[in-house]
Simulated assay, not measured.
Amino acid sequence: MTGRSLAKPLYIAVGTLAVLMISVFIWLMLAHDPDAGQPKVVIDIERSDRLTTGSIQAPGPVAGLPTAPDTRSLPDRISPALPPAPAPSLVEAGRYGPLPRVSQGEKPLFAYARPLSREQVNSPLPKIALVIAGIGGDPHVPMVVLDRLPADITLAVPSSARDAQGWIDRAREKGHEVLLELPMEPAAFSEAGLSRRPILADAAEHDIVDDMHWHLSRASGYFAAANPSRSRYRSNAEALRTIFRELGQRGLGFIEITPGTAAARQVATSMGLDYAGVDLVVDANPTGTRIEAALDRLVDVAQRNGFAMASATATPTTIERLSAWLDKVNGREAVVVPASAALLMPRNGWK
Rank of each mutant, 00 (worst) to 15 (best):
L65C: 03
V131P: 00
L17S: 15
V141P: 01
I45A: 13
T317F: 00
G175C: 07
H32C: 10
D300V: 15
Y222P: 09
R304G: 03
P338V: 11
A192N: 06
L90A: 11
V131F: 02
T67S: 15
T313E: 05
E333C: 01
A308Y: 05
S23D: 12
S73F: 08
S5G: 03
P108K: 04
V145Y: 03
P338R: 12
P86M: 13
V144L: 12
A13K: 07
L240I: 00
S23N: 12
D300N: 13
A219T: 14
G166Q: 10
P316R: 06
Y96L: 01
V141M: 08
L322C: 14
A237Q: 05
N305G: 07
R241Y: 02
R114A: 07
L247M: 11
A58L: 02
Q57L: 04
I199Y: 01
P100T: 12
E46L: 14
P69L: 08
A308C: 12
L252T: 01
G94H: 11
S340L: 09
F110E: 03
I132T: 10
G3H: 09
L182M: 13
D207N: 12
P59I: 04
A164G: 09
A113V: 01
E185P: 01
T67H: 10
L30Q: 04
S323Y: 08
G349L: 05
P34E: 08
F110D: 06
R4C: 07
G15W: 07
D147N: 10
P338C: 13
A264V: 05
M184F: 12
Y112G: 03
A264E: 15
A81M: 06
I319L: 14
